[in-house]
Design a protein around this nucleic acid. Sequence first.
DNA 1: GCTAGCATGTAAACGGTTACATGATTAG
DNA 2: CTAATCATGTAACCGTTTACATGCTAGC
Lengths: 164, 164
Amino acid sequence: MLVLSILGFLAEEPLHGYELRARIHQLSGHARPVSDGSLYPAITRLTEKGLLSRRAEPGSSAAQRQVLELTEAGRAELLRRLREPTDTEISDSTQFFTVLAFLSKLPELADRNAVLRRRLAFLEAGGRGFFHQEQADPYRQGMLTIAKASSKAERAWLRSVLDN
Amino acid sequence: MLVLSILGFLAEEPLHGYELRARIHQLSGHARPVSDGSLYPAITRLTEKGLLSRRAEPGSSAAQRQVLELTEAGRAELLRRLREPTDTEISDSTQFFTVLAFLSKLPELADRNAVLRRRLAFLEAGGRGFFHQEQADPYRQGMLTIAKASSKAERAWLRSVLDN
DNA sequence: GCTAGCATGTAAACGGTTACATGATTAG
DNA sequence: CTAATCATGTAACCGTTTACATGCTAGC
């Protein structure tokens, strides 16, 4: 997911690591903070794979910035990942929201809608039996109540987008 | 999170690994499947730490079962984790729902309510600015719409439980 | 005879967390 | 002069994923 966020934000404009971290944090850092120890190694790996290029630039203040830019291969990889999300990127809400955050980068409406339809189908399958557990435990009942409300809101939004 | 689920289900009754996997799957496997490669090593680690004991039992069919049981130390660790969830167990919905699934194991109402109040305070802080991003991107708008609906439903449930 | 389900594990590769490490600039 | 913010990284540890590996029993 970190990789998808990096590719996604860099598809908008070149950024240095610190700024990238700020954007990722704004997008999903409220739930799970991004640590430098995961971000910088991820940048290094993506650069080694040829998906990113980096060039040094004098910092606005402080240390030298490494400005990161998507390569053609990087952009192709981003589009491929958005077009063909894995099963857990469809089923795991956290992962799906990351896909959704960058879905507008996919140029074809049909491709974008195909992804939304996969998510809708997953939700309509009812979390694979998750929703009709009968629970005596009041806290698990609460979990189900909340999950049902979220699912309902999301299905309504997905249908409204798919129906244009 | 896996560890919390293992301790939580074993607090209800002794189980063997295969049955434990089935229960974890029912609880949260719809989003993220549990793999044997994470479950069995986790069981081994917990046994080495003295939180679990295992004894062999003839299988109902097939291979020998390793029946797992919580030790006193294991039960104490479960209660400690439920009483004092980490910050990310409060902020990350997936992790919080795992805590919630076993919260009824905490004997004191005051302890359980303290956990719920921490979650409510986090949600009322508005996802730390997450909710008032103005987004032109329609998919990110959708994300916000869904997130707001979920948050609202969860806050309503939390308040109803806390108000008795 | 074969497939599905029961049942438990190991090994390699990969990625994330935490702590450590450095150093400049700006505002109070 | 000191804290906050800007800015980038490394190293050890730990856990997860994926693939591999085995073997029994019941039903078709």
